[in-house]
């Protein structure tokens, strides 16, 4: 699973890309997925995650695209207007990614964080290789990952928060 947050101050864009090599969706499902009244769950009739994500991108003067192929995977690309007043703040990415990574140990994640030419990549496969069988939930490991994200995100921003 890949998650990328890329800010380009020159082009005034903030691009968020989420991609996986999961089961994918067929053309019909891709068309319907941005509809708030479409969901594959049977617990209720609405699914708001993707529609909200699309709305947030479009209201900041950006764009939104989903590419998917059954059996191959899905790639969601949302482009936001970086300085647009209607762009919602990115939020606490360190905490968000820390939580996703430590709570889903059966999935590999590659998190890319870039602001112009400053940035870093966190690849859980590299971390797992170093750790052997040691869990991301071990307190020392967990707080290392949190600090790794916090420090590197702060340094990528070089004083600015996106």
């Amino acid at each position: 699973m890949g998650i990328s947050v890329i800010a380009d101050t020159g082009a005034d864009t903030l691009t968020v890309i989420i991609e996986d090599d999961g089961c994918g969706m067929n053309e019909e499902q891709v068309k319907k997925v941005t509809d708030p009244f479409y969901t594959t769950r049977d617990t209720r009739k609405v699914g708001l995650g993707v529609p909200f994500f699309k709305m947030a991108a479009l209201q900041s003067g950006g764009s939104f695209e989903i590419k998917s192929e059954p059996g191959v995977g899905t790639k969601v690309t949302a482009v936001f207007g970086l300085s647009n007043i209607d762009r919602m703040p990115l939020g606490d990415m360190a905490e968000t990614i820390h939580m996703i990574v430590t709570m889903n140990e059966e999935t590999d994640f590659v998190y890319t964080h870039k602001i112009d030419d400053r940035g870093f990549v966190l690849d859980t496969r590299q971390m797992r290789e170093i750790l052997g069988g040691l869990s991301f939930k071990e307190p020392e490991v967990s707080s290392y990952i949190k600090e790794y994200l916090e420090e590197n995100i702060a340094e990528s921003g070089n004083g600015t928060v996106i």
């Binding site: 870093f120 971390m127 170093i130 750790l131 040691l134 071990e138 290392y144």
Partner: peptide, 22 residues
């Protein structure tokens, strides 16, 4: 930037001392 070197140190420190949780 924080590097993965520290993670290696954590791994070495904890080697043997932790019963890997299942």
């Amino acid at each position: 930037m924080k590097s993965l070197e520290e993670l290696k140190a954590i791994r070495e420190k904890m080697q043997g001392s932790v019963a890997f949780r299942s």
